[in-house]
Computed example of a mutant assay.
Amino acid sequence: MDDISIAGYVPGAIGRAAELHALYYSREWGFGLFFEAQVAAGVAGFLQRLDPARDGFWTVSRAGRVLGCVAIDGAQAETAGAHLRWFILADELRGLGLGNRLLQEAVGFCRRCGHPSVFLWTFKGLDTARHLYEKHGFRLAEERQGRQWGTDVLEQRFALALA
């Protein structure tokens, strides 16, 4: 793991975040163009308005290639909670503890910023990610049928109170 680094934004991170999401969710869940476009536009828009006092973005790279990321969008932290977004790792990095490290970075950042809570949206069936969320104290707060990712899924909102 000596050649693996965790950093903030690096050139190519937007494209790689979109690619990682598109490849995984297409292969495993049949998501398509709508989903990939949503991820690319969302990450790009977020990074263009990133305020380091409330927002965070972390990448995992090996040999200069982005192979994972996570973000904290704190724009609505005081009213709705900070939003954990775009959490993903390439298949080759799974099982090395890097997902755990990314979540530690994200939740620790929220605590340091004084965000009262943090939440995320996911969907039923992503059991490995759910295990990590619950390990970090997130609890299932809401479930509903939805199409927010362009495909019918049982959406799940997980939340973690920090204050």
Rank of each mutant, 00 (worst) to 15 (best):
Y9E: 05
Y9F: 15
V10F: 04
P11W: 12
P11R: 09
G12P: 06
G12D: 03
G12C: 10
G12N: 04
A13Q: 02
A13C: 11
A13P: 00
I14H: 06
I14W: 01
G15E: 08
G15Y: 02
G15C: 03
G15S: 05
R16T: 01
R16L: 09
R16S: 11
A17I: 11
A17K: 01
A17D: 09
A18I: 06
E19Q: 15
L20P: 00
L20D: 00
H21G: 08
A22W: 08
A22L: 09
L23I: 14
L23P: 01
L23S: 11
Y24D: 10
Y25C: 08
Y25Q: 06
S26H: 13
S26M: 10
S26V: 06
S26P: 01
S26A: 14
R27V: 08
R27F: 12
R27Y: 12
R27C: 11
R27G: 04
R27N: 13
R27T: 14
E28R: 13
E28V: 14
W29S: 11
W29K: 09
W29Q: 13
G30L: 14
G30I: 10
G30R: 11
G30H: 10
F31N: 02
F31I: 05
G32A: 04
G32Y: 04
G32D: 03
G32N: 05
G32W: 08
L33F: 12
L33M: 13
L33E: 15
F35M: 05
F35Q: 01
F35V: 04
E36K: 12
E36Q: 15
E36F: 10
E36C: 12
A37T: 15
A37E: 15
Q38P: 05
Q38M: 14
Q38D: 13
Q38N: 10
A40W: 08
A40V: 10
A40C: 13
A41V: 11
A41Y: 07
A41I: 13
V43K: 04
V43D: 07
V43C: 06
V43M: 09
V43S: 07
V43E: 04
A44Y: 09
A44L: 13
A44G: 13
G45D: 09
G45R: 04
F46Q: 02
F46D: 03
L47P: 07
L47W: 09
L47Y: 02
Q48L: 14
R49A: 15
R49L: 11
R49W: 04
R49I: 05
L50Y: 07
L50H: 07
L50W: 03
D51Y: 09
D51S: 12
P52V: 10
P52R: 07
A53S: 14
A53H: 10
A53Y: 02
R54D: 08
R54G: 00
R54P: 02
D55M: 03
D55N: 04
G56D: 09
G56V: 04
G56E: 07
F57S: 00
F57L: 09
W58C: 01
T59I: 01
